[in-house]
Design a binder for these strands. Structure first.
Length: 430
RNA sequence: GGUGGGGUUCCCGAGUGGUCAAAGGGAACAGACUGUAAAUCUGUCGGCAAAGCCUUCGGAGGUUCAAAUCCUCCCCCCACCA
């Protein structure tokens, strides 16, 4: 069995580690405990958090114990690391609510039953701290001279906005978390994004100073697309793991639209497919890569939303864009559908109209705005003028063209399309 | 607290009385080429059933035929000094 660290390296999870060989030796042991902190800034995680989540899942697969630490306490302070602006400070109620949402999503990836993994909240210990004892016991181990040199504070110290005192304390709190988890759960490894390096190292040092023990740290690279954008950021905002915020269809589409150059890299990071099979798809060229993208989208959607939703999104995509079955010899371990089944378009964005509305007729530009394919009537007019609006696959010629019941197709629906990719189906309310 | 510099449309940023729905860049959207990819070229990019009208330049008032631009008060940010 490969060492955890080997798996991480070959799948692209490692930016930096502490201790080199010593860490590798530690990871050869059974039943290690490892933690990652998650910010409770929203009630849902998004694609940007997938790397940490996947890393914990890998760890659990090897029989170790992951701890997901919800930052209920640190969320009250706000991590300035790598941030250009002061974080909005959350109320305890909001943090609590968000923590619940986050656990639900983590449970898709990590088995929390029977203590196989733990979900902890640092509010449990941080909010009980007393200022003077904390300063005397913990604060004394931190050198301000060193802290202000930390990369994580640098950006803010040099910025116009500056760094305020509450944020300056953040590093101590995260270091204290590691100390607590080490003492109470025997946790010797903390992982996190590359912006967490300073916080992780300060925890390692705190444990060494107070307990004279060695603990370890690993950071993940900041994953960007080949065009340089952060993962999971789109115009409409983040790509969320919560189906209420980002539908499985949209989620699937996000992955389908992966840049050619990113397919293999993302597959290694965001699916559990064997690395050997992923290396094979690097050889694919041109349109064949689209099959690999289908697998990536399907697997990624399945992990977050389950097989049923992934299948729906798959079939919806096939019905709208025209499908192309994934060949048997591409990524054989994937459970993606290998043949085209009956088309099922339920997950394509849709809305219901009353038949009377269509009897009267609705001008084309109006309907595009109403269903959300255009942000305003003016935008819809422009869209139509530029030839980017389609009804049942036919280009709309005039923005005043009336959409009526005559436009209903054999299935009793109207398919609207904006540009090449954005679909909306109109159905009749019975 | 003092002095100085600022707040412009999604973001950056020009504009210092009419020619301003506001330069330029980025992002985004559409078209062409394609493979639901990238790159490139072209066009669009406040709202409105629209050759017109309406609302925007931190906020509230005022001057003027006319204000993003001038005046008054207020709010916020930054730098230096204390």
């Amino acid at each position: 069995m490969s060492n955890l660290i080997d798996i991480f390296y070959e799948r692209g999870f490692i930016e930096q580690t502490t201790h080199g060989d010593e860490l590798k030796e530690y990871l050869d042991q059974d039943n290690i405990t490892c933690y990652i902190g998650f910010d409770p800034t929203a009630s849902s995680l998004h694609v940007g958090s997938l790397v940490p989540i996947m890393s914990l899942a890998h760890i659990q697969k090897l029989g170790h114990r992951p701890i997901a630490l919800v930052g209920g306490g640190t969320g009250l302070v706000g991590d300035p690391s790598g941030k250009t602006e002061t974080r909005q400070i959350l109320t305890p109620e909001v943090v609590e609510e968000n923590a619940i949402g986050i656990k639900k999503q983590l449970s898709r990836f990590i088995d929390f039953s029977e203590g196989k993994a733990l979900l902890l909240n640092n509010a449990d210990w941080l909010t009980k701290l007393k200022y003077i004892p904390f300063l005397r016991d913990i604060g004394r181990h931190f050198s301000v001279n060193r802290m202000i040199k930390a990369e994580s504070y640098k950006m803010r110290l040099e910025s116009e906005e500056g760094l305020n005192f509450i944020e300056f304390n953040y590093m101590l709190l995260q270091a204290y978390d590691f100390l607590q988890l080490f003492k109470n759960y025997g946790c010797r490894l903390q992982m996190g994004g590359s912006d967490q390096w300073g916080n992780i190292v300060s925890g390692i040092e705190l444990v060494r100073k107070m307990c004279h023990e060695t603990v370890f740290g690993i950071t993940f690279p900041l994953i960007t697309t080949s065009s340089g954008a952060k993962m999971g950021k789109t115009v409409k905002g983040a790509v969320w793991l919560d189906s209420e915020r980002t539908s499985p269809y949209e989620y699937y589409q996000y992955w389908i639209n992966t840049d050619d150059k990113d397919v293999a890299r993302f597959m290694a990071l965001y699916t559990f497919l064997p690395i050997d099979e992923i290396r094979e798809i690097e050889k694919l060229e041109n349109a064949d890569l689209n099959m690999a993208k289908t697998v990536l989208a399907f697997e990624a959607t399945q992990l977050v939303h389950g097989r049923e939703e992934a299948s729906k999104a798959y079939h919806a995509a096939a019905s709208m864009f025209g499908g192309c079955a994934v060949s048997e010899n591409i990524l054989p371990s994937s459970s993606v559908h290998r043949d085209m089944l009956d088309v099922d378009d339920v997950s394509v964005p849709h809305s219901f109209f009353v038949i009377d509305q269509l009897r009267e007729g609705i001008p084309a530009f109006k309907i595009f705005h109403t269903v959300g394919l255009a942000s305003s009537g003016g935008a819809a007019r422009r869209l139509i003028e530029q030839g980017g609006a389609y009804i049942n696959a036919k280009r709309i010629q005039s923005f005043e063209q009336q959409i009526t019941e005559k436009d209903l197709d054999d299935n009793g629906t109207i398919v609207l399309r904006s540009g090449k990719k954005r679909f909306h189906i109109i159905k009749i309310k019975k």
